[in-house]
Protein backbone atom coordinates (compact mmCIF):
# COMPACT_ATOMS: atom_id res chain seq x y z
CA UNK A 1 0.00 0.00 0.00
CA UNK A 2 1.42 3.37 -0.97
CA UNK A 3 1.57 6.35 1.32
CA UNK A 4 -1.17 8.05 -0.68
CA UNK A 5 -3.42 5.02 -0.20
CA UNK A 6 -2.71 5.04 3.51
CA UNK A 7 -3.77 8.67 3.71
CA UNK A 8 -6.87 7.91 1.69
CA UNK A 9 -7.86 5.05 4.00
CA UNK A 10 -7.20 7.18 7.03
CA UNK A 11 -9.31 9.98 5.66
CA UNK A 12 -12.16 7.74 4.67
CA UNK A 13 -12.11 6.09 8.10
CA UNK A 14 -12.21 9.50 9.71
CA UNK A 15 -14.94 10.66 7.37
CA UNK A 16 -17.16 7.69 8.16
CA UNK A 17 -16.63 8.32 11.85
CA UNK A 18 -17.50 12.02 11.68
CA UNK A 19 -20.51 11.63 9.45
CA UNK A 20 -23.67 10.92 11.48
CA UNK A 21 -25.12 9.10 8.48
CA UNK A 22 -22.39 6.47 8.54
CA UNK A 23 -21.54 6.43 12.23
CA UNK A 24 -22.47 3.32 14.20
CA UNK A 25 -24.33 3.67 17.51
CA UNK A 26 -22.15 4.33 20.50
CA UNK A 27 -22.77 0.96 22.15
CA UNK A 28 -21.76 -0.96 19.00
CA UNK A 29 -18.59 1.07 18.74
CA UNK A 30 -17.58 0.54 22.35
CA UNK A 31 -18.47 -3.16 22.36
CA UNK A 32 -16.29 -3.86 19.34
CA UNK A 33 -13.49 -1.64 20.60
CA UNK A 34 -13.43 -3.23 24.04
CA UNK A 35 -13.49 -6.72 22.56
CA UNK A 36 -10.50 -5.94 20.38
CA UNK A 37 -8.58 -4.21 23.14
CA UNK A 38 -9.48 -6.96 25.62
CA UNK A 39 -8.17 -9.62 23.30
CA UNK A 40 -5.04 -7.64 22.63
CA UNK A 41 -4.41 -7.14 26.36
CA UNK A 42 -5.17 -10.70 27.39
CA UNK A 43 -3.31 -12.56 24.69
CA UNK A 44 -0.48 -10.25 23.74
CA UNK A 45 0.21 -7.60 26.34
CA UNK A 46 -0.30 -9.67 29.49
CA UNK A 47 2.12 -12.49 28.54
CA UNK A 48 4.73 -9.95 27.55
CA UNK A 49 4.25 -8.17 30.85
CA UNK A 50 4.36 -11.52 32.69
CA UNK A 51 7.72 -12.40 31.15
CA UNK A 52 9.33 -9.26 32.49
CA UNK A 53 7.69 -9.35 35.94
CA UNK A 54 8.53 -13.01 36.45
CA UNK A 55 12.06 -12.33 35.28
CA UNK A 56 12.49 -9.58 37.85
CA UNK A 57 10.44 -11.18 40.62
CA UNK A 58 13.50 -12.23 42.64
CA UNK A 59 15.26 -8.96 42.13
CA UNK A 60 17.54 -7.40 39.64
CA UNK A 61 20.67 -9.17 40.85
CA UNK A 62 19.13 -12.58 40.20
CA UNK A 63 18.12 -11.37 36.76
CA UNK A 64 21.65 -10.21 35.97
CA UNK A 65 23.12 -13.39 37.41
CA UNK A 66 20.86 -15.55 35.23
CA UNK A 67 21.80 -13.64 32.12
CA UNK A 68 25.52 -13.59 32.82
CA UNK A 69 25.66 -17.27 33.73
CA UNK A 70 28.23 -19.02 31.49
CA UNK A 71 25.58 -21.41 30.13
CA UNK A 72 23.35 -18.49 29.17
CA UNK A 73 26.22 -16.64 27.54
CA UNK A 74 27.09 -19.78 25.60
CA UNK A 75 23.45 -20.09 24.48
CA UNK A 76 23.48 -16.46 23.35
CA UNK A 77 26.68 -17.08 21.41
CA UNK A 78 25.28 -20.18 19.73
CA UNK A 79 22.00 -18.45 18.85
CA UNK A 80 23.86 -15.52 17.34
CA UNK A 81 26.21 -17.85 15.47
CA UNK A 82 23.34 -19.89 14.02
CA UNK A 83 21.43 -16.86 12.85
CA UNK A 84 24.52 -15.06 11.59
CA UNK A 85 25.24 -18.01 9.33
CA UNK A 86 21.64 -18.85 8.40
CA UNK A 87 20.70 -15.26 7.60
CA UNK A 88 23.32 -14.46 4.92
CA UNK A 89 22.83 -17.90 3.38
CA UNK A 90 19.10 -17.39 3.15
CA UNK A 91 19.48 -13.87 1.82
CA UNK A 92 21.65 -15.21 -1.00
CA UNK A 93 19.44 -18.27 -1.64
CA UNK A 94 16.26 -16.23 -1.32
CA UNK A 95 17.34 -13.51 -3.71
CA UNK A 96 18.65 -16.08 -6.19
CA UNK A 97 15.43 -18.11 -6.04
CA UNK A 98 13.20 -15.05 -6.30
CA UNK A 99 15.26 -13.71 -9.21
CA UNK A 100 14.96 -17.04 -11.01
CA UNK A 101 11.25 -17.39 -10.43
CA UNK A 102 10.18 -13.85 -11.15
CA UNK A 103 12.43 -12.93 -14.06
CA UNK A 104 12.62 -16.17 -16.04
CA UNK A 105 10.32 -18.82 -17.40
CA UNK A 106 11.47 -22.40 -17.20
CA UNK A 107 10.23 -25.92 -16.73
CA UNK A 108 9.53 -26.95 -13.15
CA UNK A 109 9.07 -23.37 -11.97
CA UNK A 110 5.90 -24.32 -10.08
CA UNK A 111 7.75 -27.22 -8.44
CA UNK A 112 10.48 -24.86 -7.28
CA UNK A 113 7.91 -22.50 -5.78
CA UNK A 114 6.33 -25.42 -3.94
CA UNK A 115 9.72 -26.63 -2.70
CA UNK A 116 10.54 -23.19 -1.33
CA UNK A 117 7.43 -23.43 0.81
CA UNK A 118 8.37 -26.87 2.13
CA UNK A 119 9.99 -25.61 5.34
CA UNK A 120 6.74 -23.76 6.13
CA UNK A 121 4.46 -26.67 5.40
CA UNK A 122 6.43 -29.31 7.22
CA UNK A 123 6.49 -29.40 11.03
CA UNK A 124 9.82 -28.16 12.44
CA UNK A 125 10.12 -31.37 14.45
CA UNK A 126 9.93 -33.36 11.22
CA UNK A 127 12.54 -31.06 9.71
CA UNK A 128 14.87 -31.78 12.61
CA UNK A 129 14.18 -35.49 12.32
CA UNK A 130 15.09 -35.43 8.62
CA UNK A 131 18.56 -34.21 9.52
CA UNK A 132 18.92 -36.90 12.17
CA UNK A 133 17.95 -39.52 9.57
CA UNK A 134 20.47 -38.18 7.07
CA UNK A 135 23.42 -37.26 9.28
CA UNK A 136 22.72 -39.24 12.51
CA UNK A 137 24.81 -42.24 13.61
CA UNK A 138 22.30 -44.63 12.03
CA UNK A 139 21.54 -42.27 9.14
CA UNK A 140 22.65 -42.36 5.51
CA UNK A 141 25.93 -40.55 5.94
CA UNK A 142 26.29 -41.30 9.66
CA UNK A 143 29.00 -43.96 9.45
CA UNK A 144 30.99 -42.06 6.83
CA UNK A 145 30.90 -38.90 8.95
CA UNK A 146 31.86 -40.88 12.06
CA UNK A 147 34.80 -42.45 10.21
CA UNK A 148 36.08 -39.02 9.29
CA UNK A 149 35.54 -37.66 12.77
CA UNK A 150 32.89 -35.15 11.73
CA UNK A 151 30.08 -34.63 14.19
CA UNK A 152 26.94 -33.09 12.77
CA UNK A 153 24.02 -34.30 14.86
CA UNK A 154 24.05 -33.26 18.53
CA UNK A 155 26.60 -30.64 17.58
CA UNK A 156 26.73 -27.07 16.30
CA UNK A 157 26.60 -27.89 12.53
CA UNK A 158 23.21 -29.56 12.83
CA UNK A 159 21.82 -26.55 14.69
CA UNK A 160 22.97 -24.26 11.90
CA UNK A 161 21.57 -26.64 9.27
CA UNK A 162 18.20 -26.93 10.98
CA UNK A 163 17.98 -23.16 11.49
CA UNK A 164 18.83 -22.49 7.85
CA UNK A 165 16.25 -24.98 6.66
CA UNK A 166 13.42 -23.67 8.78
CA UNK A 167 14.05 -20.03 7.90
CA UNK A 168 14.66 -20.57 4.21
CA UNK A 169 11.30 -19.34 2.80
CA UNK A 170 11.16 -15.92 4.48
CA UNK A 171 13.34 -13.94 2.07
CA UNK A 172 12.19 -15.73 -1.08
CA UNK A 173 8.51 -15.52 -0.13
CA UNK A 174 8.81 -11.82 0.53
CA UNK A 175 10.64 -11.07 -2.71
CA UNK A 176 8.79 -13.21 -5.27
CA UNK A 177 5.53 -11.22 -5.35
CA UNK A 178 7.44 -7.94 -5.16
CA UNK A 179 9.73 -8.82 -8.06
CA UNK A 180 6.90 -10.29 -10.10
CA UNK A 181 4.94 -7.07 -9.68
CA UNK A 182 7.93 -5.03 -10.80
CA UNK A 183 8.28 -7.05 -14.00
CA UNK A 184 11.34 -7.18 -16.19
CA UNK A 185 11.10 -3.84 -17.98
CA UNK A 186 13.77 -2.10 -15.92
CA UNK A 187 16.15 -5.05 -16.32
CA UNK A 188 15.57 -5.17 -20.06
CA UNK A 189 16.20 -1.44 -20.26
CA UNK A 190 19.46 -1.86 -18.34
CA UNK A 191 20.67 -4.65 -20.60
CA UNK A 192 19.75 -2.76 -23.75
CA UNK A 193 21.85 0.12 -22.40
CA UNK A 194 24.82 -2.22 -22.22
CA UNK A 195 24.81 -3.30 -18.58
CA UNK A 196 26.05 -6.79 -17.72
CA UNK A 197 23.92 -9.21 -15.71
CA UNK A 198 25.76 -8.39 -12.51
CA UNK A 199 25.54 -4.62 -13.10
CA UNK A 200 21.84 -4.98 -13.81
CA UNK A 201 21.30 -6.84 -10.57
CA UNK A 202 23.43 -4.50 -8.50
CA UNK A 203 22.28 -1.16 -9.94
CA UNK A 204 18.70 -1.87 -10.97
CA UNK A 205 17.16 -4.94 -9.35
CA UNK A 206 18.64 -4.67 -5.86
CA UNK A 207 17.72 -1.01 -5.26
CA UNK A 208 14.15 -1.85 -6.22
CA UNK A 209 13.86 -4.71 -3.76
CA UNK A 210 16.02 -3.49 -0.89
CA UNK A 211 13.17 -2.71 1.52
CA UNK A 212 11.42 -5.97 0.75
CA UNK A 213 14.72 -7.74 1.25
CA UNK A 214 15.27 -6.03 4.60
CA UNK A 215 11.74 -6.96 5.65
CA UNK A 216 12.32 -10.60 4.71
CA UNK A 217 15.70 -10.60 6.43
CA UNK A 218 14.21 -9.23 9.66
CA UNK A 219 11.54 -11.92 9.74
CA UNK A 220 14.13 -14.55 8.84
CA UNK A 221 16.40 -13.41 11.65
CA UNK A 222 13.59 -13.35 14.21
CA UNK A 223 12.64 -16.89 13.34
CA UNK A 224 16.26 -18.05 13.27
CA UNK A 225 16.85 -16.79 16.80
CA UNK A 226 13.53 -18.08 18.10
CA UNK A 227 13.46 -21.50 16.39
CA UNK A 228 12.74 -24.28 18.85
CA UNK A 229 11.30 -27.46 17.31
CA UNK A 230 13.82 -28.42 14.65
CA UNK A 231 16.79 -27.31 16.72
CA UNK A 232 15.50 -29.21 19.75
CA UNK A 233 15.50 -32.51 17.82
CA UNK A 234 19.06 -32.18 16.52
CA UNK A 235 20.73 -30.38 19.41
CA UNK A 236 21.06 -33.11 22.03
CA UNK A 237 20.60 -30.43 24.73
CA UNK A 238 24.21 -30.39 25.86
CA UNK A 239 24.29 -27.53 28.33
CA UNK A 240 26.74 -24.81 27.44
CA UNK A 241 27.50 -26.56 24.16
CA UNK A 242 24.49 -27.20 21.97
CA UNK A 243 21.72 -25.19 23.61
CA UNK A 244 20.36 -22.11 21.89
CA UNK A 245 18.39 -19.47 23.79
CA UNK A 246 14.95 -21.07 23.35
CA UNK A 247 16.35 -24.47 24.37
CA UNK A 248 18.08 -22.90 27.35
CA UNK A 249 14.77 -21.38 28.49
CA UNK A 250 13.17 -24.80 28.35
CA UNK A 251 15.98 -26.43 30.32
CA UNK A 252 15.86 -23.79 33.04
CA UNK A 253 12.08 -24.00 33.24
CA UNK A 254 12.15 -27.79 33.53
CA UNK A 255 14.62 -27.39 36.37
CA UNK A 256 12.18 -25.11 38.19
CA UNK A 257 14.51 -22.13 37.88
CA UNK A 258 11.58 -19.92 36.95
CA UNK A 259 13.22 -16.56 37.52
CA UNK A 260 16.23 -17.54 35.41
CA UNK A 261 14.02 -19.06 32.71
CA UNK A 262 11.98 -15.87 32.47
CA UNK A 263 15.11 -13.73 32.55
CA UNK A 264 16.48 -15.55 29.50
CA UNK A 265 13.00 -15.47 27.93
CA UNK A 266 12.96 -11.72 28.43
CA UNK A 267 15.99 -11.50 26.14
CA UNK A 268 13.99 -13.20 23.40
CA UNK A 269 11.03 -10.94 24.13
CA UNK A 270 13.29 -7.89 23.81
CA UNK A 271 14.55 -9.25 20.54
CA UNK A 272 10.94 -9.56 19.38
CA UNK A 273 10.30 -5.92 20.26
CA UNK A 274 13.39 -4.77 18.37
CA UNK A 275 12.30 -6.89 15.41
CA UNK A 276 8.86 -5.29 15.46
CA UNK A 277 10.37 -1.82 15.47
CA UNK A 278 12.67 -2.67 12.55
CA UNK A 279 9.79 -4.29 10.72
CA UNK A 280 7.68 -1.16 11.08
CA UNK A 281 10.57 0.89 9.74
CA UNK A 282 11.05 -1.40 6.75
CA UNK A 283 7.31 -1.55 6.05
CA UNK A 284 7.11 2.22 5.94
CA UNK A 285 9.80 2.31 3.27
CA UNK A 286 8.41 -0.68 1.43
CA UNK A 287 5.14 1.10 0.69
Amino acid sequence: MSAADTIKVYHSAERYEKNPATREPRWVKYTILSMALGFFGLFLLLPLFAVFTEALRKGFSVYVAAITHPDTLSAIRLTLLASFIALPLNIVFGVAAAWCISKFNFRGKQLLITLIDLPFSVSPVVAGLMYVLVFGIHGWFGSWLADHGIKVIFAVPSIILATTFVTFPFVARELIPLMEAQGTDAEEAAISLGATGWQTFWHVTLPNIKWGLLYGAILCNARAMGEFGAVSVVSGHLRGQTTTLPLHVEILYNEYQFAAAFAVASLLALLALVTLALKLYAERHLS
Partner: peptide, 27 residues
Protein backbone atom coordinates in the same frame (compact mmCIF):
# COMPACT_ATOMS: atom_id res chain seq x y z
CA UNK B 1 21.35 -7.39 -26.58
CA UNK B 2 24.07 -5.39 -24.88
CA UNK B 3 26.35 -5.74 -27.89
CA UNK B 4 23.76 -4.71 -30.47
CA UNK B 5 24.00 -1.06 -29.42
CA UNK B 6 20.34 -0.46 -30.01
CA UNK B 7 18.42 2.27 -28.25
CA UNK B 8 15.13 0.83 -27.03
CA UNK B 9 12.36 2.91 -25.59
CA UNK B 10 9.80 0.90 -23.66
CA UNK B 11 6.09 1.50 -23.78
CA UNK B 12 5.96 2.52 -20.14
CA UNK B 13 9.46 3.99 -20.40
CA UNK B 14 10.99 1.64 -17.76
CA UNK B 15 12.86 4.51 -16.12
CA UNK B 16 14.89 3.53 -13.06
CA UNK B 17 12.65 4.79 -10.28
CA UNK B 18 15.39 5.01 -7.67
CA UNK B 19 17.65 7.19 -9.82
CA UNK B 20 17.16 10.82 -10.67
CA UNK B 21 16.86 11.99 -14.24
CA UNK B 22 20.57 12.69 -14.56
CA UNK B 23 21.59 9.22 -13.33
CA UNK B 24 19.00 7.59 -15.55
CA UNK B 25 20.48 9.19 -18.64
CA UNK B 26 24.05 8.55 -17.49
CA UNK B 27 23.36 4.86 -16.82
Amino acid sequence: VRERQIGFMFQHYALFQHMNVFDNIAF
